[in-house]
Write a protein that binds this DNA or RNA. Structure first.
Lengths: 352, 352
DNA sequence: CTGTTAGCGCGTTCAG
DNA sequence: CTGAACGCGCTAACAG
């Protein structure tokens, strides 16, 4: 009674294992009556096909692999959450392939295209080299991309440039004229590009508003709160400091907030800050930000993986998710020294 | 050149596949010279054993499975991070089995003990039923426990009771006499027990200090910030409210902080709050808390999995990690002025 | 010590 | 439409 295999079902139904296989996989033609016999045998025996063995026979590991850099970053992990959720229904475990160092990417991809050959592969934020793509192709793996793009591959993304413009315009509409930008290094070691695209949106918004790009107002560096804090410090130390900062991620925005507090500046009265992503901590910090549906991006990726599995000939899909401005307590009109009324601090921002 | 199998190596070395297998797995006896021939064939051919096939032959899925409730909780995820990190070196992917509903636990375990049969299994925070344990046993799976215990199984944990006492004593030493407690429901649907143990530590500390348990001072409910906030409100609404609160988790402590702000109380002047875990957000919120090495707990679990894999006869290990008090800005001596008197606005606690 | 023979549980040709 | 046979890549008896 411990493990019922395809043979047990075949015997019980009085057919060959091949027929059971055909019924289970909806492949080939099976007479309706035979199919019924098999199906009832399956239910009376409580047969569950062995995913590992099935994988072996088809040369695939029974999991959906996710290649993701810095999986502990709240934004990355929110995406994973969405996949885990969807894959649970799909009956496939999700395996994590974390990239903390640039070399991890190649190592994992080699293993994935080599002996592991997962049922599905999702690549988050990373840029695949042509060599890696070729290798995956040979292995019959068509990765689904999230937060990155490549010709011929399905992708789940947002319009980052529009998001950058949305954030910047929010500040401009509040009346800010001096808006700084803090983002990632343009050509970082991982090939992330979201920050660049958001930066492009920032530039576009400024240009459309007829505002100049001020010297030293755009700062990029390795991703992280610390770095962002230093950048914000530098920004605030300028002779004519910005009255508002657009940070390409919430993490960086949080760094900017810390810098402001260090300097004894009141947010948002003395300085407005807007972030990007709307990770969980953003709400707690009362951070104004651009929300992108992180969890949903994972769900969509899982959906596409499943659809491509069901229909390998399927054309690549481009799934663009919506973004929205979430106005909280870190943005407000600039504090003009000559301004008439004194603005009093509003009630303490409370999360939740 | 696409895939080099064990047969290629065998041919190249002029031996049988079994011998190659023995060399690769360090099983059985192989003459040193033969071993050398095999090894050199392996390197010249660049052979990498197929983990999926190996799994199939031994009836095991080539991953380390992690059964973890609410994996998106910062504390749970920090543990997963540690495992992912260690398993990368180990050459095994980590698969996530998230438990969001009590029924997920059984479903996953059935699958794990059924067709999936991972190389290793780590169970976080959950209580296994005897039925589940039996099933795992039959499947030859010996789970490694984290943040939970069971006779005969290895576990990675902390001394939660000592932690509860440590937190409480911190408050008592500051001079607080009226200390409230907020924790999880005693018999929640998932069988979590950490909160209970911390509560025991709280009671012990009070007793040792000769302090009474005041009516309505100990509140438990479903885990979550919202619930904790309500409990804190209730605590603060008492005729003689506590001057300090020990929350069994940082999440709950954050809820308590929110309640304090709502009431216009200054933290830590009017109310001290201490949490537990030291998740990332705790630092940002300036929360005093008990730190437990979450990431390291994952690393240790991975280590034990590997050691038990190498030596199945190994005795169960009990790995107790150290905890430390991290004093930040939410605890201070009590404000000994007129109790029901004036309440001032809180100066926002600043992180970093 | 090493080679031969069986499978692991299933998918997938091929006949029939 | 269905069954028998083979193979995925490797491990595990069983001989020798």
């Amino acid at each position: 009674m411990s493990v019922v295999t395809i043979h047990d079902v075949a015997r019980q139904a009085g057919v060959a294992v091949a027929t059971v296989s055909r019924v289970m996989n909806n492949t080939g033609q099976v007479r309706a009556e035979t199919r019924q016999r098999v199906l009832s045998a399956v239910t009376t025996l409580g047969y569950r096909p062995n995913r590992t063995a099935r994988g072996m026979a088809r040369g695939r590991l029974a999991t959906v692999a996710v290649l993701v850099p810095f999986v502990t970053h709240p934004s990355a992990f929110a995406r994973v959450q969405g996949m885990v959720e969807s894959c649970r229904d799909l009956g496939l475990p999700v395996s994590l392939f974390d990239v903390e160092l640039p070399e991890h990417q190649g190592e994992h991809l080699r293993a994935l295209a080599g002996d592991l050959r997962p049922e599905g592969l999702v690549v988050v934020s990373l840029q695949l080299t042509s060599d890696e793509r070729a290798r995956l192709d040979e292995a019959g793996l068509r990765p689904v991309l999230v937060d990155t793009e490549a010709a011929g591959l399905s992708t789940v993304c947002i319009d980052d440039e529009a998001g950058g413009a949305l954030a910047t315009n929010h500040l401009l509409e509040l009346g800010h004229q001096r808006v700084g930008f803090i983002g990632d290094l343009e050509h970082d070691r991982f090939g992330f590009t979201a920050s660049e695209r958001r930066h492009a949106g920032y530039l576009r918004a400024l240009a459309e508003a007829g505002l100049p790009q001020r010297a030293g107002y755009q700062r990029t560096g390795p991703h992280g709160r610390e770095t962002a804090r230093e950048h914000a410090r530098a920004l605030l130390a300028l002779a004519e400091p910005p009255t508002a900062i657009f940070a390409a991620s919430d993490t960086q925005a949080l760094g900017a907030l810390e810098a402001a507090r260090e300097q004894g500046l009141t947010v948002p009265d003395d300085l407005s800050v807007i972030g990007f992503d709307d990770v969980e901590i953003a709400e707690h910090a009362g951070l104004t930000t651009i929300r992108q549906p992180l969890v949903d991006s994972g769900r969509q990726a899982a959906r596409i993986v499943e659809q491509e599995r069901a229909d390998p000939g399927r054309a690549a899909e481009r799934c663009v998710l919506d973004i929205t401005l979430v106005a909280r307590q870190t943005t407000a009109p600039p504090h003009h020294s000559a301004a008439a009324g004194r603005r009093r601090r509003a009630a303490r921002p409370v999360g939740g």
